[in-house]
């Protein structure tokens, strides 16, 4: 198993290099560059633009730029500078606790989604084709089909225009109300954080619940039709024990590997919600780099997301082997 993990980890390196080359070429193919906006400024002369282009190395050919960037990484572990902030790319992406907030928001949302979806999936499967099954499925799909940005905006609008939370001194969007922004941590501040974070749980959570409920439902239904479940029932075991001790434990296997696969979703996958709800996330920093064509920050972000994707896959495989004794890697 250990050699397997080491081998998989080593495979990641060439893969990441290929990803980086393709990404670099794609950024190059994108029309314009970081200085395109400055070009439209009447006060900036062509000489200044040419100077800046040379200073940023944008006057070189794409392969030379890529090679210089790669060389810096190999020799100095330097992933380049952001043109905008003149600071290292990962600092620009992660500064001010963005990485921490991203993980806090995603992890709590994921936990909640799983804690709600799995029981609902089980309930749905055990009440197949009953009205309650249809109702759950309906609401699950409703959450899936409402666009996140729209849901988030409607939610904020409801809070402001209908419930008028402003009259109670409560704010919307962001992490804290104005009065808590600079205040030291306290119970009140933590409570305020919860007030600001629940819309994110609701918006991101509902979009992922339908999938999980259906997976759990389908998987459990498959299991319930297996012979060992019939055997268990025939032995006269109570239905509760049959479902939870025998069926669910096997039915949950595919979902455990899904858990690993959702690792990349922890750092990416909530961009639109983060923009509307004004949450500080790595993805927003990446998105604004994309808009400004701050190319090394884009590269840094892509590598970071790719790494999480690869790690997520690896963890999914490991988890699968761990929960299912039939699977062995060599």
């Amino acid at each position: 198993m250990i050699t397997y993990i080491v081998r998989r980890t080593l495979y990641m390196l060439p893969l990441l290099i290929i990803v980086s080359l393709i990404s670099f070429l794609l950024i190059y193919i994108m029309p314009g560059d970081y200085l395109t906006r400055a070009q439209m400024n009447p006060q900036v002369t062509q000489e200044t633009l040419a100077q800046m282009r040379a200073a940023y190395g944008l006057d070189q050919s794409v392969l030379v730029q890529y090679w210089l960037w790669l060389k810096q990484i190999i020799l100095h572990g330097n992933f380049g500078m952001s043109f905008e902030t003149m600071r290292p790319v990962f600092w620009t992406l992660f500064m001010g606790g963005r990485l921490m907030w991203t993980i806090i928001v995603s992890l709590t949302t994921m936990l909640l989604t799983w804690m709600i979806s799995i029981p609902l999936g089980i309930y749905s499967a055990t009440h197949q084709y009953k009205p309650s099954d249809h109702t759950l499925t309906f609401f699950g799909f409703l959450g899936l089909s409402i666009p996140n940005f729209f849901f988030a905006l409607v939610l904020l609008w409801l809070l402001v225009a209908v419930f008028k939370v402003g009259n109670h001194g409560l704010g919307v969007g962001g992490l804290f109300d104005n009065r808590f922004i600079a205040a030291p941590w306290s119970l009140a501040k933590f409570g305020n954080l919860l007030w600001h974070i629940w819309p994110a749980w609701l918006v991101i959570g509902t979009s992922g619940m339908a999938g999980l409920i259906r997976y759990m439902r389908g998987s459990l239904l498959d299991t319930l039709s297996l012979q060992y479940v019939q055997t268990a029932r025939a032995k006269g075991l109570p239905e509760r024990t049959v479902i939870y001790k025998h069926a669910v434990r096997n039915a949950i296997n595919p979902l455990v590997s899904m858990l690993g696969m959702s690792l990349p979703g922890l750092v990416s996958g909530s961009l639109i919600t983060a923009i509307v709800l004004n949450l500080p996330t790595v993805e927003r920093a990446f998105f604004s780099a994309l808009q400004m064509q701050d190319q090394y920050v884009i590269m840094g972000g892509l590598l970071f997301f790719s790494l999480f994707l690869l790690l997520g896959n690896l963890i999914a495989d490991i988890l699968l082997a761990w929960v299912d004794p039939r699977i062995r890697y060599s």
Binding site: G96, G174, N278
Partner: peptide, 8 residues
């Protein structure tokens, strides 16, 4: 300064 939040 807190990124994506505010400048005081």
């Amino acid at each position: 300064y807190t990124p994506d939040q505010n400048v005081t």
